[in-house]
């Protein structure tokens, strides 16, 4: 395995982790949006606040990790993507800014009216970001980002692969969030809320599963390179995703929320890794291969030092944070 591929793998690991952890944070916006009026939705919104409050900033940094490895390790392909996908990336960015800012503002709002305003912005922007990031990924995966950059600003992402990519991203985020929030609600003694969330999550999960598999049909027409590998080497992962997703729904039906979280994470991770396998060995599908996109070897080694340090410093610290948030003492007094 070449040095470039190792760095690309490290970057892709960041994508999977961002999809799982960042995705769950973004997905909570869907439940916040559909929680109902301030009276009825208050309990759920406090739960969301408590669940993602301590972790969302840390989870968000995976995106930064992805970006810095991309532009440092594969600079030309990064510039090609940003000049072509300016619109979806800028819209995703607006979502990121509005989501983070209004989430913090809402927590310390003085009045209900302010909290409603910031809450609506938080929830709405939480859906925008995954959609446009998914659409951008679809553009790369379907071979619409030319190697020299400055591709078509609209056609590059207004096509079935990107649009389904966006929908899948929104759906998987909401599914993950639903499962995690249901488990959090049940664990912190909000029984009625957990039941409501369980019903909605079952709906979201089923819908997302349908979208993922329906999407294979237009993608086959739209992106032959990607779909050849999706239905080839990546097929076991698509099957794994179907199995894990179905198992999660069964676990939710049986109110086994702890294992359901693992199932949901496995299902989403399988979809993401399936995309990664399908895209290999391309950095920009049909345009630039990973090996050809790589920057200077000395820089790739430098990036591996960073990745190693992340393993030593960031991973244990993250584990400590997540361990704390799951501990008895932090679950109380929501």
């Amino acid at each position: 395995m070449s040095l470039a591929v190792v760095v690309a793998l490290a970057m892709f690991a960041g994508i999977v982790l961002y999809g799982l952890f960042g995705g769950a944070d973004f997905g909570s916006g869907f439940f916040d949006l559909t929680a109902g009026g301030s009276e009825r939705g208050g309990e759920l919104r406090i739960l969301i606040d408590h669940s993602i409050g301590p972790v969302w900033e840390a989870n968000h940094v995976w995106l930064i990790y992805i970006l810095v490895i991309w532009w440092t390790g594969f600079p030309v392909s990064f510039a090609a993507a940003t000049t072509t996908l300016m619109l979806p990336l800028a819209l995703a960015l607006v979502g990121i800014v509005l989501r983070g800012a209004s989430f913090a503002f809402r927590k310390y709002s003085a009045t209900l009216a302010q909290a409603r305003l910031f809450g609506a912005v938080f929830a709405g922007s939480s859906l925008i970001t995954p959609f446009f990031l998914g659409a951008a990924a679809g553009a790369v995966a379907s071979g619409r980002v030319p190697a020299e950059g400055n591709g078509d600003p609209l056609d590059s992402w207004l096509h079935p692969t990107s649009l389904f990519g966006g929908l899948i991203a929104v759906g998987t985020c909401a599914f993950l969030a639903g499962v995690f929030l249901t488990a959090d609600a049940a664990r912190s003694g909000h029984g009625v809320l957990a039941e409501t969330l369980r019903t909605r999550t079952l709906g979201v999960g089923a819908a997302t599963g349908v979208i993922v598999f329906v999407a294979l049909v237009p993608i086959k027409q739209d992106s032959p390179t990607l779909s050849d590998r999706l239905l080839g080497p990546a097929a076991p992962l698509i099957v794994a995703s179907a199995v894990a997703g179905s198992a999660t729904l069964v676990l939710l039906l049986r109110r086994r929320y702890g294992p359901a979280r693992l199932g949901a994470a496995a299902a989403v991770a399988s979809v993401l890794i399936g995309w990664g396998v399908a895209q290999y060995p391309w950095m920009l599908v049909d345009e630039v291969k990973i090996a050809d996109a790589a920057g200077a070897p000395a820089t790739l080694w430098g990036l591996l030092v960073v990745v190693g340090l992340a393993g030593v410093i960031v991973v244990p610290a993250l584990a400590y944070l997540f361990w704390l948030t799951q501990s008895e003492r932090w679950t109380q007094e929501a």
């Binding site: 930064i64 810095v68 440092t72 594969f74 600079p75 200077a296 820089t299 990036l303 960073v306």
Partner: peptide
Amino acid sequence: GRFGDVLGLPFAFEGLSFF
């Protein structure tokens, strides 16, 4: 695009400290 692999490494370390 031209200098990403020259100037990018400090940004990667900055990513760690942001984490």
